[in-house]
């Protein structure tokens, strides 16, 4: 008989404020470690006494088993996580979910498109592609944020520019912003999309995902070459609580990363 698996304690070894309301938590196992995470998979992160939330891993450091989770304070649990200090301990369960299918991107251009906090689950993809440049074609990273202050990983974005095409746009320009203003689909015109051999990976608000995927399809990219990471309420991560349903999908098992060809009709139904 299997036993209830409680979370494993992980210690916060560093915190990096990313924006006014988002923090990256660097976590190391306090004792036993969870199995290896793949980019796009998520953990159920437990704030002591407050609750658990599903958070995709935003960096995986294989050398020492460190996991990084970037959390935006939008509720009680995420708020508590954002207030953690180095030395504090959280509970982690996982890895859960499908993860990005980077095998299917081998030999192809990789186009990463993120909106807001959606860049977090995609960051391990960028790391992996940059680590193994010969396995993939060109790397493009298109990022949209509300304002320049809401941009995640600003230092890293600069670093990525040396090996990838990185384009950034904001919804609202703040004083000093000299870059692009507008929705992220506007950046597609700047990227030299080779539709016949590109794998696009999208994460962000659902409305951004739909419009961006449609814009890619309009430029000739087949829907099955678009992967999207979706979000729903999750209580268990193991397919039993019923909360993460999107039509036939249980997003904790079948997602969060799904093929756009399959999910497109589901995303088209309001309040599904």
């Amino acid at each position: 008989m299997s036993r209830v698996m409680p979370p494993l304690p992980y210690r916060v070894t560093a915190t990096h404020p990313e924006t006014a309301d988002a923090v990256s938590l660097e976590l190391l196992p306090a004792a036993a470690a969870l199995p290896r995470f793949r980019p796009g998979q998520f953990a159920m992160v437990y704030a002591f006494g407050v609750g658990e939330v599903p958070i995709s891993v935003s960096a995986i450091r294989h050398q020492d088993g460190a996991l990084v989770h970037t959390v935006r304070a939008v509720g009680a649990v995420s708020g508590a996580l954002c207030r953690l200090r180095p030395g504090d301990v959280v509970g982690l369960r996982g890895p859960y979910g499908t993860g990005w299918d980077l095998d299917s991107a081998a030999g192809a251009d990789v186009l990463v498109i993120a909106g807001g906090i959606g860049l977090a689950p995609l960051r391990p993809v960028v790391h992996q592609v940059l680590d193994r440049p010969r396995r993939y074609g060109r790397l493009g990273v298109l990022v949209g944020a509300r304002t320049a202050e809401d941009l995640l990983y600003r230092d890293e974005l600069r670093h990525w520019r040396t090996s990838a095409q990185v384009e950034v746009t904001v919804d609202r320009p703040t004083p000093g912003w000299q870059g692009t203003v507008g929705v992220v689909t506007g950046l597609l015109d700047r990227s030299e999309l080779r539709a016949e051999n590109t794998c696009a990976l999208l994460c962000g608000p659902e409305v951004m995902i739909r419009h961006t995927a449609q814009a890619l399809i309009a430029r000739g990219l087949p829907a099955h070459r678009i992967q999207v990471s979706l979000e729903r309420n999750m209580r268990c991560g193991t397919g039993h609580c019923g909360h993460c349903q999107l039509g036939p999908l249980l997003l904790c098992l079948d997602g969060p990363v799904v093929d756009y060809a399959g999910s497109q009709p589901l995303l088209a139904v309001r309040e599904l």
Binding site: R3, A30, G91
Partner: peptide
């Protein structure tokens, strides 16, 4: 009840009901 958690001396321990 799925588990109990206890926080003391900077440690976090989890216990299940067996």
């Amino acid at each position: 009840r799925q588990w109990r958690a206890e926080r003391s001396d900077g440690q976090l321990t989890f216990e299940t009901d067996d």
